[in-house]
Design a protein around this nucleic acid. Structure first.
Lengths: 344, 344
DNA sequence: GACCGGAGTGGAACCGGTTCCACATTTGTA
DNA sequence: TACAAATGTGGAACCGGTTCCACTCCGGTC
């Protein structure tokens, strides 16, 4: 439990000044005679010296660290997103501080304070939708913010990376409409979130294209946390004129919704054709395998990281960018044409 | 983009010295007149002052931060573990730096260096099994290390939190043996890992209890990454005398193994009774729902955090502790008695 | 009235890096 | 040969906190 060597220890041992050692450490910052560089490197190795990040951070004023503020690591979508971002970041020599908000605005606010204290250069986040002024403050202090998956429209000057939510929801809906379904349930996220709103919009737009009016009863916006998905499934299937198609557009509620369907013994696709957002390794292992909108997590990770790093290096034009990536529709056997005479 | 106020700004505005402000910030460190405390707090609020973590860290020499080194966030088990640990930690006012190794010893080594640079006070990790001397070095520098899920036996002085691996594997195996199965396949983790070894040991021990000899052909240790689980399933079922039971004791390979079973159209439990490590929300949504060993992730998270924080505060006796928590066996319909005359 | 102890305060050193600047030495050019 | 520019080096200030210490007031005690 001896204490770690400092730059001054290295300098003393190598018989040079700390300036020289520092320049060896940061080659850009000035010239060093090749012989001395050799010596210094050898001493560094012998002593097992490693620069302390805090000291560097204090003097340069910022860190090569980004914050990742994610709603819920227990959700496979966010977990994979985090995995990819952490992975990509390390390739760029950038550290990631992962925080979870559990969809709670207070926790989100706390997380932002913490990241501010740590002088991160940028933040990638799936915002809850609240804390608008807090996000704005973060920006005004020079922290680069990139929203991924969701966004907050009231907030200007933020880069956004998401899937094409309106289009994806429309495509899913049109698929079911095309199979002859007239009554399609939609379980979406809260309308307070951009994804919630966009997906409902896509759903409506598909109905317009097919000149079918939307029954508001069929649209349920449920919170991300809790068992709202299961409850919505229950009440949708309890309707007098029950839907023959269902789109679960709330990633966090897919599992709860499917569980309820299984418990109720609903025949899929016999009684109900189902499409879920998003795809994960298990959606094709249920029976029947579920049709899904697949979010290209890699793309989301790569783009958001590219944006935030680009901003941190000042390489990007000032105007905020919005990147929408395509999400594939993966048809599986959970969807079937509507029979003219229903089986029930 | 104005720069953030410092403690000296606060002191000047409040008309006091920096010492006073510092004492207001850290109440333990000295007395402050109530009136001045008031003033300082008001100024802090007005200026929106927040102490910079790096400065504090530099002067006190350590941070209230722990590192979490996890194999793979895309694996629901680790993702949930991370989620719980991050959650618990924030309750204690402790930050967590999450890193992933993707089971690669080199990346693990890198991660440890990084954590060292950041002066973390403790590390919770699921070690790959390599880097023994690196872990030892970390310890010798005063970093408290807690292994969770797996361990490295060669390394002394480390706290370990895991499920009771030998017992769990034995229980799963005995369940199948009790149903009359004589040939049970085992897909475990690499024997280079403690979990791999322990689970094989439990499997063997169960066979001894039933006085049945183990056919080495039936035991497959496969890497965590890649598609080894699927391949093992394929080759096990291709054996002339194929098994009628299967235990997938490699968490990372469950999904790949099940996928192969589905692809091959294996009838479960008709042709094959199946038990998997561990439980996750989707294992009961497959058909049939899978019997599983459920790892109490909450317990793992709570205990490992308690240990690492306890060590950081020096509250614990020096002797390393090993905590083994029980894992429940959750029977579902993927297991059935062996028919005397097989269906095939 | 002298003395003691504790509350309250500010000055300044310190943590371990980076960076600016002054200076010495070498090299290149007119 | 003289002078400018490039190269290499070390000293010291600085980043923003914490903490030790000296010092000034107090009230209480003998």
């Amino acid at each position: 439990m001896k204490k770690a060597p400092t730059i001054r220890d290295v300098a003393a041992t190598a018989g040079v000044s700390v300036s020289v050692v520092s320049r060896v450490l940061n080659p850009e910052s000035g010239p060093v005679a090749p012989a001395k560089r050799e010596t210094v490197l050898r001493v560094i190795d012998e002593l097992g010296y490693r620069p302390r990040a805090a000291a560097r951070e204090l003097s340069v004023g910022h860190t090569p660290t980004i914050g990742l503020v994610v709603a819920d690591l227990a959700n496979p979508f966010f977990a994979q997103l985090a995995d990819r971002i952490v992975w990509e970041a390390r390739g760029h020599g950038v550290q990631v501080m992962v925080m979870t908000t559990q969809e709670d605005p207070h926790l989100e606010a706390d997380s932002l304070d913490t990241l501010l204290d740590r002088s991160v250069g940028g933040v990638i986040a799936t915002p809850t939708g609240a804390n608008v002024e807090k996000w704005a403050r973060l920006q005004s202090l020079g922290v680069n913010v990139v929203f991924v998956d969701r966004t907050i429209p009231e907030l200007s000057g933020v880069d956004v990376v998401s899937i094409e939510n309106v289009g994806s929801a429309r495509r899913a809906t049109e698929h079911l409409l095309g199979l002859g379904h007239k009554r399609i349930g939609l379980i979406s996220g809260p309308v307070s979130t951009s994804t919630g709103r966009s997906r409902i919009q896509g759903y409506q737009s598909a109905h317009e294209n097919f000149s079918i009016s939307v029954d508001p009863q069929l649209v349920r916006d449920v919170p991300f946390r809790g068992d709202g998905g299961g409850d919505a499934v229950g009440s949708l299937l309890a309707l007098p004129d029950r839907p023959t198609g269902l789109i679960v557009a709330n990633t966090a509620q897919v599992q709860s919704s499917v569980r309820r369907l299984v418990q109720m013994g609903t025949s899929i696709p016999g009684d109900l054709s189902v499409i879920v957002f998003d795809d994960n390794p298990w959606t094709e292992l249920t029976s029947p395998p579920l049709s899904a909108i697949r979010q290209p997590i890699d793309m989301l990770a790569v783009h958001s990281l590219e944006l935030v790093l680009g901003r941190m290096q000042g390489k990007l034009p000032a105007a905020p960018r919005t990147i929408e990536v395509n999400a594939d529709f993966v048809p599986r056997s959970s969807c079937a044409p509507l029979l003219l005479s229903p089986t029930r």
